[in-house]
Design a protein around this nucleic acid. Structure first.
Lengths: 136, 136
DNA sequence: ATACACTCCGTACTATACTACGGAGTCAAG
DNA sequence: CTTGACTCCGTAGTATAGTACGGAGTGTAT
């Protein structure tokens, strides 16, 4: 099985056909050769590339970042250190997001502890705090 | 100063004029009375409500959730416990997101440790892992 | 040979939360 | 009374990552 249709690639990579066309438009995967009918003919590597994209996404990279990662991969002027740099930037990014979420969580836990869960909404400490809270 | 224009409310609440109109369309704030000219006339409480929205957003609530929070607040059949329930659901939601981010971070840290930062991209363990990684 | 699945394309829609635009009308200060 | 800032409205655009649609053409199995 040398070349595959878009549907076969989609199944093997675990994505939708429309997603592949979308990635093509975004420049994440190159335009494959076509049959006379216009049908796309993908080589095996297309599946690898789609999996790369999926894996990178799972690690928190956006499509724009993945695009860069894919370009750097084939750029002879790029070194492993550049990739490492992107990974480190992503780690910092994730840490920032975790920090923000932890902050939210701690405020919510605090408010939640103040609320006995009894009484009407007019005396709910959570709602009161939301009305008056003077943070930032 | 009994009533205010949309611009004055925007400044006091720290949001944009367009944002207020947007919230009105979304039903987050009620339509205020109008002057003969059509200008909106806001009472002071409008500022409180906008601040409520801002605070709730900072705690991770979406506009849809805030909408619910605001409805429940004035619903006589709603108790403090219902609000507490929403807060707890949000805490769980945030914890889930933190978990997901922690997972990403740990994989990235692992990959990062494998990469010496030396050599070309063709032998970068990070890129290799992204191509082959068999998680999920 | 015909039925049915697959593919083509561009466009539009989903969700989230705004932000910008343009042209007309209004308000307040000088 | 004029000027400049403000407000009105609906629509469209931003970013992210797809998903859906519809009508026409294609591939293949029976």
């Amino acid at each position: 099985m040398k070349s595959m249709t878009i549907g076969q690639v989609a199944i093997q990579a675990g994505v939708g056909v429309e997603t592949i066309r979308f990635y093509e438009r975004r420049g994440l995967i190159e335009e494959p050769p076509r049959r006379d009918s216009g049908y796309r003919e993908y080589p095996q590597e297309a599946v690898t590339r789609l999996r790369f994209i999926k894996h990178a996404q799972r690690l928190g990279f956006t499509l724009a970042e993945i695009s860069e990662l894919l370009s750097l991969r084939v750029d002879p002027n790029t070194s492993c250190a550049d990739i490492k740099g992107l990974a480190e930037a992503k780690i910092a990014d994730i840490e920032g997001r975790i920090q923000a979420l932890e902050k939210m969580k701690s405020v919510l836990l605090d408010l939640n502890a103040q609320c006995g869960g009894r009484g009407s909404t007019s005396e709910c400490p959570i709602l009161e705090a939301l009305e008056t809270e003077e943070c930032c």
